[in-house]
Amino acid sequence: MLVFWERRLVFLATPKTGSTAIETALESLSAMPVMRPPVLKHTPVQRYRRFIGPYLKMASGHDFETVALMREPRDWLGSWFRYRTREAVEAGKATRGMTFDDFVTAYAADPQPAFADVGSQERFLRPRNGEGVDHLFRYEDIDAFVMFLEDRLDCAITLPRLNVSPPGALDLSDQAEALLHKACARDFDLYDRLSPEGVAPSWSAP
């Protein structure tokens, strides 16, 4: 999460959407860069609206706008799967030796095993009391997101490649593909309603 005080803008770091590269590029411009621990770095919208947003308004006397990214849901899960194949990931959360089919099947299970318990973008971005993200861009439209930031922050931005997941096969059987779309139905619905301009869509009740 990055707070740009003078620009009245907050970047909320949806997991696995390039947030490490974005925060590294823009940390020096932020009055309050929150890059660790992960529970604070990846502050979801509801927690921001309940705790941080009101404090920023009280301290500054102004409302702050929020901006975030969302990744195509299948690609997002694939990034988690590949990320957890790294040797550095502890055994209980690692996906080494698994197929993407195994991972998706586990993600769709209830309860989820630890290695597949990676949350949901829709839950991360779901608003509290109707107040969601003001500007929500597709990760796949990263150029539009960067242009938005360049305009708001009045600077040129070049994003480095950091924290990139290792390569890996993301083939799925028809059964696993169906499970994925069922488990991520709300994520697919939200993603499909995003606009290239980053206009936040209306929300249905959870």
Rank of each mutant, 00 (worst) to 15 (best):
T158E: 15
A156K: 14
Y48C: 09
A108L: 05
R7I: 07
A178L: 10
H42P: 07
A108F: 02
A178W: 09
E27P: 06
A109C: 11
D154E: 15
E197Q: 15
F148Y: 04
E90Y: 09
G198L: 02
W5E: 11
Y107D: 09
L170I: 05
T17S: 08
S165Q: 12
A200N: 01
S60C: 08
S30E: 10
V146T: 14
W203L: 00
S60M: 09
A25T: 05
F148H: 03
R50P: 03
A88R: 15
Q175P: 04
C184Y: 04
R71T: 09
L12C: 08
M35G: 06
R49D: 07
R96K: 15
A178F: 07
F115G: 04
V199T: 10
R161H: 14
E122I: 11
L170A: 04
P15L: 15
F145E: 05
A183L: 06
V10W: 00
F51S: 11
W80P: 09
R71M: 08
E197R: 14
L180Q: 01
L125C: 03
A183F: 05
V104I: 13
W203S: 00
D189A: 15
Y139M: 12
A94G: 08
P54M: 09
P38A: 15
R186F: 05
A183T: 08
L194R: 02
D134Q: 06
W80R: 10
A13R: 04
F81R: 03
A31H: 13
P73T: 02
L56Q: 02
F115D: 02
A68N: 01
W5A: 05
D141Y: 01
F137T: 00
P196A: 15
G168A: 08
R71P: 06
D174G: 10
T95Q: 04
R128M: 12
A156C: 08
F51Q: 13
V133P: 00
R82T: 01
R186C: 06
E140R: 08
F11H: 00
V104H: 01
P54W: 10
G119W: 04
A205Q: 14
Y191G: 00
L77I: 06
A13M: 11
F124D: 00
L190D: 03
C184I: 05
H42K: 14
G92N: 15
S19F: 06
E150I: 08
R186Y: 07
F115M: 12
M70R: 00
D171R: 12
H135W: 15
A13D: 05
S204G: 14
L40R: 07
L40T: 09
F145N: 01
G92Q: 14
F137G: 00
R123Y: 09
M35K: 13
L26C: 12
D174S: 13
P15T: 05
A94T: 13
T105E: 13
Y83S: 10
L69W: 01
G61K: 13
A185Y: 10
F124W: 01
P33V: 13
E90A: 14
V164S: 11
E140I: 06
L194S: 07
L29Y: 05
V34P: 04
W203R: 00
L12P: 02
E150H: 09
G132W: 05
F64C: 03
L29P: 02
R128W: 13
A178I: 07
F100L: 08
T99C: 07
T20A: 12
F103V: 06
P113R: 02
M1R: 00
T158L: 09
L12I: 11
D75R: 12
R186N: 11
G130N: 10
C184A: 13
D154K: 13
M70I: 02
A185T: 10
S173M: 08
I52N: 04
